[in-house]
Design a protein around this nucleic acid. Structure first.
Lengths: 324, 324
DNA sequence: TTTGTAATTTGACAAATGTTGACATCATCT
DNA sequence: AGATGATGTCAACATTTGTCAAATTACAAA
């Protein structure tokens, strides 16, 4: 029109009008027509502004976690396993994959509420943990001062891309926290080497840091042949069989546990580098994030073992666990 | 249809389906038809569920404060007064009242980010502060552990309903914090009585608590005849005139300050009960929330005095202040 | 100055969402 | 059994929001 004042021209941050539109829309509850009038642009432009605002994460929609914690299944699970709090995400119709993503999303929303400044948070690995970390990084950055994230198990060669160090690094980034990585493989070929590594000053220090964690996030692993422990090369199928014969029915931080959550010993124990299960029993908070029928047994085991104080899962899995 | 499973029947919390609908809509981005299909209800019902979810505050939309802090005016104000951060809310067309509400909203969203566990937060009084507190209480409850809120000035008889103790009490509630009220009037008829009151053990203790505050929230008061200091009976018009003659051009926590923000002495000083200005100069954070042309001078004074480190105002007022 | 290009805006149209009122169903109370 | 109230359904309509191709503008290269 009259004097051409395009958005980019001369502004320090050309987004002021976008912000204004977003404010009017989301806060003041005006509709797009009203906003268009005030801003003297067409309504279509307002649509664009709002999209831009959403893309730039100027707007955050979150759901009150209390709602999920209050869920009926939540009560029952809390009761059954003596947990402090349980977060149930509703399960749509998609496959397990989509359930997993939703649980991750739930966990990503909940976690910041569970962490306070000064905490040291141990992090395991797995797809769920990885997705959770990703979501924390991307969607609006939380920052809690003075938090340290520590990698609970050594690294491994997963074909999926969510190794232990990536999980911990991303989570640290997502929380704006410092990160202590564990610069060692999760498993080596013989116990001697493992022991030597554990004594290496750098690694020894990192392992010591794990003992200082007061909180932790982990997933439960199943003991099927196609489980992640096997796929990532931590255990061979034979190893797995041995452990299962000894009563293993779940995996936590690379370690096998039986129905009661007690550690099951086997050929790999001495060759692994990572946190030991007894460090995980008296945490202020142990957040278990897992989904899927195949994980149900393992989750039970982990909860029976007293490692978890908090749980995120979906309604389906919750029901299965309660029926076990 | 087949087997009647009405929402209210036997559920612990009848809202599960509402939550599910909300989740699918806001998180998974499905549209109402898809949700209706999945949930096996009509679309109309989905509309109802979503409304219910919004009414129950299951959904929170917030705007990233960074955006406002990055505003051009914000830069300039930060520069001019040496502030740490400035939050500018865009100004719609409504009257001053609506600007005030928006600033309050902005402050309500920002404040939780500025408070960390262990803080002791002093709170002044005024309409803006009151509205901010209200918003914090209503819209989704923030809880920051181990925070203490203290009432900075004694109570007064305002005709508007936002007395100092209501402001602090509500704000404490909104933050999930403990509250230290000041059980004394803001002003008494003579200096002796004031002194006696200050020596009363209970009040002495409360006043001492004010000295412990590391952060504070306050508004700037103008020195017009219709300002809140006068309307609330703290100062008579004559008192006001005296102070203005002595150079006062703003009010902070009931105390008068000149252009540079230095305290202006006058007839009321000894009769007031509340924090003294010198306690407010070395705060970790002093959040000034004010809006309106009439407040501009006072705001300048307060910022010049170094009481404020953070500011929330609207674009109009910001511009006026910069032009002064 | 002209021309090309990418960003921005816009209007017309399509899709999604909200509203209303009439009605059906079920649980509960009388 | 009948009345009542809460909840869900349906269908038509009004309102709001999203999409897309075409037009406009700023800016830089020719």
């Amino acid at each position: 029109m009259a004097y051409g004042k395009r958005r980019a021209s001369g502004q320090v941050s050309g987004d002021e009008i976008v912000v204004e539109a977003a404010w009017l829309y989301y806060h003041d509850g005006l509709n797009q027509n009203e906003i268009a009038d005030r801003l003297r642009v067409s309504r279509a432009t307002v649509v664009n502004y709002l999209q831009e605002a959403r893309e730039n994460n100027y707007i955050r929609v979150t759901m009150a976690p209390d709602v999920f914690i209050g869920h009926k299944l939540s009560h029952q699970l809390r009761e059954k396993f003596g947990l402090k709090a349980v977060f149930i995400v509703p399960n749509g119709l998609g496959g397990v994959q989509s359930h997993l993503t939703r649980a991750a999303r739930g966990a990503a929303e909940w976690l910041p509420d569970l962490i306070v400044p000064g905490d040291k948070l141990g992090v395991a690995w797995g797809q769920t943990i990885y997705e959770m970390a990703e979501l924390l990084v991307s969607s609006g950055k939380v920052t809690i001062p003075d938090v340290e994230v520590a990698q609970l198990v050594g690294s491994m060669a997963t074909p999926y891309g969510f190794t232990a160090e990536i999980c911990s690094a991303h989570l640290a980034q997502g929380l704006g926290a410092a990160c202590v990585n564990l610069h060692a493989p999760a498993i080596v070929t013989n116990a001697d080497l493992a022991q030597q590594l554990r004594e290496e000053p750098i690694i020894k220090k990192q392992l010591a840091a794990l003992g200082q964690c007061n909180k932790a996030v982990f997933a439960a692993g199943s003991v099927c042949a196609n489980s992640h422990v096997v796929m990532s090369g931590i255990a061979s199928e034979d190893d797995l069989k041995t452990y299962v014969e000894n009563g293993a029915c779940g995996v936590l931080c690379g370690r096998f546990v039986n129905k009661e959550g007690k550690p099951v010993s086997g050929p790999l124990d001495e060759r692994m580098i990572g946190v030991e299960l007894n460090k995980l029993t008296d945490l202020e908070m142990g957040l278990l994030v897992s989904v899927g029928e195949d994980k149900a047994q393992a989750m039970c085991a982990v909860m029976n073992g007293g490692y978890a104080t908090h749980l995120v899962t979906d309604a389906d899995t919750a029901q299965i666990i309660l029926d076990l």
